[in-house]
């Protein structure tokens, strides 16, 4: 069973008189354990696609099935639960809480998991958060606040937050966009490693060079999928 299956997704935005087709009959499937990049120029609809895959937004038309379950009919609460349990987000601007330490930032999703699973004690949360920080190589920086960390470290905190609940799917939206090339390379290596450990990674980028790091590249233009190819193993 495919992890993600979308068919004929459509999403239209109106800006004044102009109608923008952010998604125009987009279809594909992503298997569990894959590393996929979605590439295209800005405004091609890749971010909209990402938001829909992450259950932050809904398509106007079309089907989206996550782990075999159609998501169109889900309530707001059920979507929140799926985001919490199955999906991890990594954003271009990190989106960390500025006043909270790295540890508190990583713990945050678990706080909401406690609503679904009563066994989440504060001690267990702390352990899981520390493990996640260790996984991204930041176990020495847990008490630092975001403004005390470098860009690359901040993004690693954000990745730890995405991983803390052991999601099936990690969605990354231009994860290297705000980083220097060295830090960007580190983050990409981290994604490759996580993928090799079994995490499904879907990464959106406008940079074809970065997109090439994925095992599969989906190219988009004006809301349509123009290319979908698997990179030959190098």
């Amino acid at each position: 069973m495919a992890l993600i299956e979308i068919s004929n997704l459509r999403k239209v935005f109106r800006m004044g008189d102009e109608v923008i087709h952010a998604l125009d009959r987009a279809s594909f499937t992503i298997e569990e354990g894959d590393f996929v990049s979605i590439v295209g120029p800005s405004g091609c609809g890749k971010s909209t696609l990402m938001n829909i895959l992450g259950l932050l937004d809904s398509p106007d038309e079309g089907q989206y099935t996550l782990e075999g379950h159609p998501v169109q009919t889900l309530s707001d609460n059920q979507r929140a639960e799926l985001r919490n349990q199955k999906i991890g987000f990594v954003f271009q601007t990190f989106n960390l809480l500025p006043r909270a330490s790295a540890l508190r930032n990583v713990e945050m999703p678990l706080v909401y998991s406690a609503s679904y699973d009563r066994s989440f004690s504060p001690v267990k949360m702390r352990e899981m958060a520390l493990q996640a920080l260790d996984r991204v190589g930041l176990s020495q920086r847990v008490a630092h606040k975001p403004n005390e960390l470098s860009g690359g470290q901040r993004q690693r905190v954000a990745i730890a937050r995405a991983l803390v609940n052991r999601p099936k799917l990690v969605l990354a939206d231009e994860p290297t966009g705000n980083l220097d090339s060295k830090s960007g390379q580190d983050i990409l290596q981290l994604f490759e490693r996580l993928n090799s450990e079994g995490v499904t990674v879907v990464m959106v980028t406008h940079d074809p060079k970065i997109a090439e790091r994925a095992r599969r590249v989906i190219a988009m233009l004006d809301g349509k999928i123009t290319e979908d190819r698997r990179r030959a193993h190098s």
Partner: peptide, 16 residues
């Protein structure tokens, strides 16, 4: 608002 967005993205429900 941003914080609310982040919290909602990682699984906070409206009630939370």
């Amino acid at each position: 608002t941003k914080e609310i967005g982040i919290r909602r993205a990682v699984g906070a429900r409206q009630l939370d």
